[in-house]
Every structure is written in structure tokens, then in C-alpha cells.
Amino acid sequence: MKTAFVGKGGSGKTTLAALFARHLAEDRNPPALLAIDADINQHLAAALGAGPDAVFPALGDHLDLIKEHLRGDNPRIAGAAAMLKTTPPGAGSRIVTIDEANPIYDRLVTPVGGVRLAVTGPFAEGDLGVACYHSKVGAVELLLNHMVDGPGEYVVVDMTAGADSFASGLFTRFDLTFLVCEPTVRSVGVYLQYVGYARDHGVRVAVVGNKVEDAGDVAFLREQVGADLLCWIGRSGFVKAAERGRHLPVGELEAANTAALRTMRAALDGCEKDWARYAAQAADFHTRNATAWGNARAGADLTTQIDPDFVLRPSAEVLRPATVAAH
């Protein structure tokens, strides 16, 4: 399953993304797991336990490598340079799984705190005034477009804060999005804005309350977000220790907060995969990007990169339209 953590800046989404990833990784039967930091503020590595001087190779700095590998021998794609961040897979594309050996993972994925981590990379000095951060995040969108996952396999993505997530089609690449919400008017405002966009695209959203201190906080969240409230994380000495650089074993997390993580995992596992919709969303956003700017840049119609008969599924086989309905 693929999941994203979103919310207001400072709501604790990075902390919860790391906590959820560590919860998955420390299972007695650890799943295939990949965590990705797609936030402009690159703090997921530190939240997982990396030291302040740790340096990680950035997906955004190796977009050519990612494109060349994923392109494979897809005849619809003239070359890696012709691929957009939204280019969907087709016959001949290389389809990746979560924990296989491939050139992308070999170079750009690093174990941190028991979790395999990839990062988009920070907004660099050379980007100022000339680049958009979402060009870096595009590496994640392209990777997820070409990724299959099955039961017991997880991708956990820490997204950019607030509505910035909607600057690309990346927000549609997840089975369930966890929106981290503090019991405050400002945080609820971000929730309202997010779901207003997300539900127009069939994106599943579950609210996880954070920094909840008492029954009044829970009542406030229930009043504001209704049935979207899945669970909540209370004030935590475990989390406070992590924020101060002392990363305790996940087994020492407070019982109520551990129960919340289990509820989140159960909700994610309970989502029904819809590979046909996944392909349709990818084609939609690729068409939007191609017609808005990609065709002009390439001097060609990049919408022809869309293979109308190709749909991903865990076996990475092609599903024909008549077969899609049967699944």
C-alpha cells in the first residue's frame, strides 16, 4: 500500500510519518517498506534517527538516472529527455517493486533507523529564482507511476505542507492519505482546504489528530472533521524524546499511541486497490502537463506516451480493457 502524510506546517506530519514507518519496520514480520521525504523541508531522515551531519543522495538530482531506468524499451518514449514527471508506464517500461535491487535504489536509497529512505533533496541555492521545488518532487511522482505493491508492502511519503501538495499529480498516487490535524482552527482550515481538492479526484483521506491532550481536544476534532477522524496521538514523552534527538525503540511508545498506529495500519490495509483508476489518474495528469507546457518544450505531442491498454497490477502484467472490468 502507498500512503502519504499531509497537514499544516508544524502539525507533526513528519514526526508521524517517521513513527508510522518505524512501527511498520519493527513488526515481528517486517514488511517491504520504503519511506520517501517529499517535503521541501527535509526532516524525515532526522525524525527516523539520522544524525545532523548525515548526507543523502537526492532523487531530484538524479532524474536522468530515474527516467532512463524506468523508460526501459517503451517504444512510445523517444528517450529519457522526452519523459515528464507525469509520464505513465506502458508496454516495455520497467516496472519496479518496493524492495527490489535496481540502479535507482542502489544509488538513492539509504537505510536509516531500520527504514529504507529516499529523499527528494532540499531546495538548493542554485534553484533560487530559477526552479520550482515540484520539479524535484516530480522524481517521486514518476517513480510511483511505475511502482507496483502488494499485500504487506508499503510506501510511506512525507509530503509538502498544506495545499502545496496539489502542485503536481503526486497527491493521487496513494491508497490512503493521512491528514495530520491539531485541535486548532488553523489546522482544521488546512484540512478543509485539502479535502476540498482531494475528493474531486477520488482521493481517500483519513484524519489523524495530533498533540491531543484531553477529551475536549477530541470533541473539537470530531465536531470539525466528523467521520474523517480516524484516531489521534496524545502528548507523548516518546515523541518529545525523539524531537530532542533521543530515539527510543518503538516498543516503548505509549500504549494508546501504539493503538493509534495499529488503527492507521488497519485502515491502510483495508483499502481496496483500484489499478484502473490509478492508470486513469496518471493519464489525466500527464495530459494536463503535456498540453500545458511539455509539448511546447519537447516540440512533440507527449500525450502519445500514454498507452491506453496498459494498467499496472502487482504482477506487472498488462490488463486489456475487457479484463480491467473483471478486477
Score class of each variant (00 low, 15 high):
V130D: 02
I104L: 07
F174R: 07
A139M: 06
G189A: 03
P151L: 11
E153F: 05
A161R: 05
V96P: 12
I104W: 06
Y194T: 14
A131I: 00
V180S: 06
C132N: 04
E100S: 14
V112C: 01
G126D: 12
Y191R: 04
L117R: 01
M147R: 15
C181Y: 03
T172K: 00
I98V: 15
M159W: 00
T172A: 02
F171M: 08
A131W: 04
A161I: 03
D99C: 07
K136W: 06
P111G: 03
G162M: 04
R116I: 05
V96W: 08
T184D: 01
E141A: 14
C181T: 11
G189W: 01
H146L: 09
P103L: 01
L108Q: 11
V148H: 15
G169T: 04
V190N: 04
F174S: 06
G189E: 07
A124W: 08
D164C: 05
V195R: 14
F178C: 12
L176Y: 09
G150F: 13
G113Y: 09
S187P: 06
V96Q: 12
N145K: 15
G114S: 02
G121D: 02
V188E: 03
M159E: 13
M147N: 06
L179A: 15
S168N: 12
I98L: 14
A101C: 00
D149T: 13
E100R: 11
R186P: 00
V157I: 08
V180I: 13
T184Y: 05
L142E: 07
D175T: 07
V115H: 03
L143S: 09
L144S: 13
D175L: 04
P122K: 12
V112Q: 05
V137S: 12
H146T: 10
C181E: 05
T184S: 08
L144V: 03
Y154G: 01
R116Y: 10
D99H: 13
V115G: 06
D175M: 06
N145A: 15
V185S: 02
V112F: 04
D158P: 14
G196K: 08
L192S: 10
R107L: 02
Y133T: 00
G196H: 09
P151S: 07
V188W: 01
G189H: 04
E141L: 10
V185F: 02
V156P: 08
V115E: 02
E125L: 11
V119H: 00
M147G: 15
V188A: 03
G129C: 06
I104R: 00
D164N: 07
R173Q: 12
L142D: 05
V130A: 09
D164V: 08
D149Y: 14
Q193I: 08
A139N: 14
C132L: 08
Y191T: 08
Y194A: 13
L142H: 07
A131C: 00
E153I: 01
Y194L: 14
T97L: 09
Y133F: 13
T97I: 11
V137K: 00
D158G: 05
V96R: 15
M159I: 06
R116W: 09
L117T: 07
T177F: 01
P183M: 07
V148Y: 12
V190A: 11
V185P: 02
P103S: 04
H134E: 09
E141H: 06
D106H: 08
D127G: 10
D99I: 10
D164F: 04
R116S: 12
T160K: 10
F171K: 03
G169F: 01
V130N: 03
G138F: 07
P111S: 01
M159F: 13
